[in-house]
Design a protein around this nucleic acid. Structure first.
Length: 772
DNA sequence: AGTCTCCCCGTTTTT
DNA sequence: CGGGGAGACT
């Protein structure tokens, strides 16, 4: 045990060894959060305070759950299977599979991903003749998910306007349709689990007694439903509840837009009468100037729990700030700096380029490609989201639950088998008339449509029969062949990658069967009862039939059903990382939780970062500031920040002011690489020794063309140029966006940021040039 | 049935 | 500017 606690700092040690009561750990960036979390679990078990089965640890991503599991098994010689470690959705899935009857779900219920959900909603709108101009499918989806995230069913949503009332009505219809098809969306997994536990007292008490310790990662990201679910599980307000060990950082709350409620941290403190609040402020990642910048910036937010990061690593280098003339030049500068970093021995993969929105990557990618610099863009299509993989999955879904209409529609005519839109329309009508699924409605079809649809049903039935005794990987193989998906892509010219992805699915199935503890040769269709008889332990507790969670999935689900759930809940990796030694490009959001030796934060301009739409939301800029805080704290040794005078966005050139965040950073920690451009004619100063002037000059042709355009547009002798920073007595600092009219009568359109866009007469307005 | 074209849209993302 | 989706055309 000494080993376990060795090398923990005093705060970490205190957190790990807290008494068995609910506690809030305020874990700063790079403060060893995961270490505390896993060591806490190991310590609890090793000191005999709890058995592995008494542990529940919840995360938001599969990656985090996996990480925890890996670290834990390195620490403890205990079988981690007994513990409930996973994502909110994964654990709810497990709960609902075990108690599907009590949750009023079919045993083979399937999980809709966002894509499926949207297409289902579109179908619903069409079926009910709803004007999708007035009630866009996306808005309805947002409405439904939002309501569910707050724990509200359709009848519980307050609706005062006609639009909302219609949404509520459609929400109800949507839920009915899901129930009919035997499918649940992501939010439904949580809501069902919540409702199951809140209605079923014996079951609730069983789990309350079982889970003595519930550990929650990234607590600041919980939404209301997740919070209430935790509260229920911990038995708050009932006897015998367990303790919640909540770890989070309110300063890194950046997911309000998807329902996360930072307020849950404060609420938790009160609801659970938290005695122990521990702050982990010792940072093991970044040098001093970087941390100073982060601390200084985030101090501009109000309503914080309060925290200041510190380091023993010394001040290190200042943050390097660069002003580019335009977006492409910003990208070129990044390349130059990257080369110099690499010359200093920084591996390329240890350098990250961050941006606020995905659209910004294009210009950077373009420049990187032209320069022959290897790079990887994070995000993009994940494995199980790719069209061909989704098609294969749809066949598998139909074999396990033919009433899944989304799956049915996806592949009923793919590869094409002469089933056109008219046939589908007829089928849909029959299904609606009898209130049954499309699949079930097929026998009611007559004529040509009936024949071709009947053949499709026969195909699915045939595949099911044929694979009855096969293990999952073989079953997948058969389905790929029999569905003619493989043959289809073989005739396609760009089909090679798709075929590879499909072949990959057999491997994925093999790996899945192994990792989930299904027998290597267990028939993929084998039902849970047969599984149980095959020797899986089933224990009962408290007079309830509670299935031992040690083998929960293998006990309650067939390998096929489990694999399908896995495909929905874990979308898999994005495209193969193109070369290990590549520059890392990603949004600030996806950078959360990662760290790099050197980090570029790009596009630090008003309107972009902070993003313009954030000013319209309550506390929107505070959230942007937290996002900036996350970005800064990704860097270990060197941090760059850049902004440009001119940027192309949505086919339009924009002139933005530099981000307000620059005013919120400690001047002594910044090193301005591009000397402030002095007033006067911008182009006559081109030979000045400013970094961007030099770079601009070197890059030749294109720049000169742009320079010419700008000269033409520069208000012909008004003395001002577009893109220039100015100050006005009343409106403050701004940027000239456009100049109209000739000398003497020129008027300038000026973006004053917070004060808005103004058109001023240049002969009247008193403007001053601003050195940036 | 498959291809073409036009129109719309544009912050962030996991499950 | 560029991608995706819906609808029209061949």
């Amino acid at each position: 045990m000494q080993n376990l606690l060795q090398n923990l700092n005093p705060e970490q040690l205190a957190a790990v060894t807290l008494p068995p009561q609910s506690a809030l750990i305020l874990a700063g960036a790079g403060s060893g959060k995961t270490r505390v979390l896993t060591t806490r679990i190991a310590w609890l078990i090793q000191t005999g305070q709890v058995s592995p089965a008494g542990i529940m640890a919840v995360t938001f991503t599969n990656k985090a759950a996996k990480e925890m599991l890996t670290r834990l098994s390195a620490m403890l010689p205990v079988n981690t299977r007994g513990m409930w470690i996973g994502t909110f959705h994964g654990l709810c899935n497990r709960l609902l599979r075990t108690h599907y009857k009590d949750a009023a779900l079919p045993q083979a219920f399937q999980i809709l991903d966002s894509q499926d959900q949207l297409s289902m909603i579109k179908r619903l709108l069409k079926a009910n003749n709803v004007d999708d101009e007035k009630y866009p499918a996306k808005d309805l989806m947002y409405f439904i998910n939002n309501a569910k995230d707050q724990g509200l069913r359709a009848h519980q949503v307050e609706a005062y306007e006609p639009i909302t009332r219609k949404f509520v009505e459609l929400y109800e219809l949507y839920d009915q349709q899901c129930q009919k098809e035997g499918v649940v969306d992501f939010a439904e997994l949580l809501l069902r689990a919540y409702e199951l536990l809140s209605r079923n007292a014996p079951l609730r008490q069983h789990y309350q007694m079982r889970f003595r310790h519930i550990l929650v990662d990234e607590f600041q990201d919980t939404n209301d439903l997740q919070y209430n679910l935790l509260k229920l599980l911990a038995g708050q307000g009932e006897q015998g509840g367990g303790a919640i060990f909540a770890v989070g950082d309110d300063d890194q709350s950046i997911y309000a837009f998807r329902g996360a409620n930072v307020g849950n941290m404060m609420k938790f403190e009160q609801d659970f009468r938290v005695q122990n609040l521990i702050k982990l402020e010792q940072n093991y990642r970044s040098h001093g100037h970087i941390l100073d910048s982060a601390n200084y910036l985030i101090a501009n937010n109000s309503q914080r729990l309060g925290k200041n990061l510190r380091t023993d690593a010394g001040q290190g280098e200042q943050v390097r700030v660069y002003e580019a003339s335009k977006d492409l030049e910003e990208a070129q500068w990044i390349i130059e700096e990257t080369k110099s970093l690499m010359a200093d021995g920084v591996p390329r993969s240890e350098i990250a380029v961050l941006y606020r929105s995905n659209a910004q990557s294009r210009v950077i990618e373009h420049a990187l490609f032209a320069a022959g610099m290897p790079y990887t863009v994070y995000g993009g299509l994940r494995y199980f989201q790719r069209a061909e993989v989704k098609h294969a999955i749809a066949y598998l879904q139909l074999m396990d639950n033919p009433h899944n209409d989304s799956a049915f529609l996806r592949v009923v005519n793919f590869p094409t088998r002469g089933i056109g839109v008219r046939s589908i329309e007829q089928l849909q009508m029959a299904a609606d008339a009898y209130g049954i699924s499309l699949y079930a409605a097929v026998p009611y079809m007559t004529g040509k449509a009936g024949t071709s649809l009947g053949a499709f049903v026969k195909l699915i039935e045939g595949m099911r029969m044929e694979t009855q005794q096969l293990a999952l990987p073989e079953l997948v193989r058969v389905v790929l062949e029999r569905s003619t998906l493989l043959a289809h892509y073989q005739t396609e010219k760009e089909g090679a990658d798709r075929i590879e992805n499909l072949e990959q699915m057999v491997n994925a199935a093999t790996q899945f069967v192994q990792e989930e503890g299904f027998g290597q040769n267990a028939p993929a269709h084998l039902g849970p009862q047969a599984q149980a008889q095959a020797g899986q332990p089933v224990v009962s507790g408290d007079g309830l039939e509670i299935i031992d969670a040690d083998a929960a999935l293998a006990t309650v689900m067939s390998p096929l059903a489990a694999f399908l759930a896995h495909a929905s809940l874990e979308a898999g990796d994005a495209q193969a990382q193109a070369g290990q030694d590549a520059l890392q490009l990603m949004t600030v959001h996806s950078a959360k939780g990662l760290e790099f030796d050197a980090v570029f934060i790009t596009g630090l301009e008003e309107g972009l970062f902070p993003h313009e739409s954030s000013s319209r939301e309550d506390n929107g800029v505070d959230e942007e500031r937290r996002l900036m805080y996350v970005a800064i704290t990704r860097a270990r040794r060197r941090l760059y920040m850049s902004f440009t005078q001119q940027r192309m966005l949505h086919g339009q050139t924009r002139f933005n002011m530099k981000s307000r965040f620059f005013n919120e950073l400690p001047e002594e920690s910044l090193k301005w690489l591009s000397p402030r451009v002095q007033q006067g004619n911008w182009f006559s100063n081109r030979k000045a020794t400013t970094a961007w002037d030099d770079a601009d000059f070197r890059s030749g042709g294109t720049d000169n063309q742009i320079a010419r355009q700008i000269t033409q547009k520069s208000g012909g002798g008004s003395g001002w140029r577009i893109g220039e920073s100015v100050a006005h007595a009343k409106f403050g600092e701004g940027v000239i966006v456009n100049i109209e009219g000739g000398a003497g009568a020129a008027r300038a359109q000026i973006n004053f940021g917070a004060a808005g866009m103004k058109v001023l007469d240049l002969s009247v307005a008193k403007l001053e040039r601003v050195a940036r």
